[in-house]
């Protein structure tokens, strides 16, 4: 399964979510994507969207520089 990283640092809401969705459209089921974001709202919005549409949250954390690492697996 492929892994992809999308760097959305510096992008404002809803930019990170839109970048994630745009990338996931071209991914295969089972692939994972790690979204990098400095937008605090995205740390809550992305898991909400993932749950709503039926994908899978793998992990989410914030590093020492304040960047959120949000990892999602495409489930359908």
């Amino acid at each position: 399964m492929a892994e992809r990283t999308v760097d959305a640092r510096g992008s404002f809401c809803p930019g990170p979510l839109m970048e994630l969705i745009s990338n996931m459209k071209s991914m295969q089921v089972g692939d994972t994507l790690e979204l990098l974001s400095t937008d605090a709202g995205s740390a809550k919005d992305v898991p909400e969207w993932v749950h709503k549409v039926g994908h899978e949250m793998v992990d989410t954390n914030q590093d020492s520089e304040g960047t959120f690492h949000i990892k999602v697996r495409k489930a359908k």
């Binding site: 809401c13 809803p14 979510l17 839109m18 969705i21 919005d45 969207w49 709503k52 549409v53």
Partner: peptide, 11 residues
């Protein structure tokens, strides 16, 4: 635009 896009991508 934000409301439209977020709602639309949520189905």
């Amino acid at each position: 635009a934000m409301a439209a896009s977020v709602a639309a991508v949520t189905g």
